[in-house]
């Protein structure tokens, strides 16, 4: 019991950090599922590409003699490049791979998404780097480590949590407080009726992909700064975990994805800390299967029958 009490705060902090990243990526799954009722299996790889864009931008703005800028500005530029680049990649994927299949059998876009995912992983592996690429995190952000009581956490971890939560709050405000956000929700609820309102549904879908993918891009930046290394396979497991988080929260439900992400991160960290760290990843699958069996609509989702 003592062991538990002593270590619990640290596991909680670790869990919130990992969970905020899951939540950021889970939002993308849920936004896209909400609008198109499709699982964008390539989403984890969009995150990976975002991380590579951030790493590339960091390389240029830190090391290149001509383009080098102060650290703070370099971080800001990384964010712009990664969010913008990932956002455009998402829009491009929708345009090229998913839109032609919008009225096809539901399986078709799903299989296409898996294809896009494999394509992105292979493309980065072959054309960019099969080995991990370093992010010069120490040249970009202070490597301060906070000690609070028994809890130890680096500034980059706090940053990950704070920026991710800030973006979630901003997204929530956009979706629930603006006119375009209402149009997104209307499109998700009844696409044809949304067109009757004069809403340009293609544009709504495009913006949704941009937002979802830009959030993933920011996830890539935050991960790079925290762990100083990115690789072409990093989106695979994280994508699955984020997807699990989205399902736990109720796929299609924005606030559900945020809570699901944080919850999954914390649970996973507690399992890793107190049961077995080897069991940690399998725990996520166990959680996914349990939710699907017991409450497939997730914590906050409507039962499927209600979603006419």
């Amino acid at each position: 019991m003592d062991y538990f009490l002593q270590n619990f705060p640290q596991q909680l902090v670790n869990g919130l950090e990992a969970g905020s990243l899951y939540a950021l990526i889970a939002l993308g799954y849920t936004l896209i599922y909400g609008i198109l009722e499709m699982l964008n299996f390539a989403h984890g790889d969009v995150y990976m590409v975002g991380a590579f864009l951030a790493a590339g931008a960091a390389g240029v703005f830190v090391h290149n003699e001509v383009a080098a800028v102060p650290a703070g500005l370099a971080v800001a530029l990384m964010m712009v490049v990664a969010m913008g680049g990932a956002g455009l990649l998402g829009v491009g994927i929708e345009r090229v791979a998913y839109r032609p299949l919008r009225n096809a059998n539901r399986l078709a876009p799903l299989i296409t998404a898996i294809g896009v995912s494999l394509f992105l992983e292979s493309a980065v592996q072959v054309w960019v780097s099969p080995a991990p690429v370093l992010v010069p995190s120490n040249a970009l952000v202070p490597q301060t480590v906070f000690h609070v009581g028994t809890v130890v956490t680096p500034l980059t971890g706090v940053m990950l949590f704070v920026v991710a939560v800030a973006l979630m709050v901003a997204l929530d405000a956009f979706v629930f407080r603006t006119r375009f956000g209402s149009a997104m929700r209307a499109t998700a609820q009844d696409r044809e009726a949304a067109t009757f309102m004069g809403i340009d549904v293609d544009r709504v879908i495009m913006v949704t992909f941009f937002l979802a993918s830009a959030l993933a891009g920011m996830g890539g930046v935050l991960f790079g700064l925290r762990y100083a290394s990115v690789d072409f396979f990093m989106g695979y497991l994280l994508g699955i975990k984020a997807f699990t988080a989205a399902v736990i929260g109720g796929i299609g439900n924005i606030r559900g994805a945020m809570v699901g992400g944080l919850l999954l991160g914390v649970l996973e960290s507690l399992v890793g800390g107190f049961i077995s760290s080897q069991f940690q990843d399998s725990f996520v699958f166990l959680a996914l299967i349990t939710v699907l069996l017991i409450r497939p609509q997730g914590l906050f989702g409507q039962p499927l029958a209600d979603r006419a």
Partner: peptide, 11 residues
């Protein structure tokens, strides 16, 4: 005014 109303149920 569409057939079967088609209001947005969760707005």
């Amino acid at each position: 005014v569409p057939e079967a109303r088609r209001i947005f149920p969760r707005l």
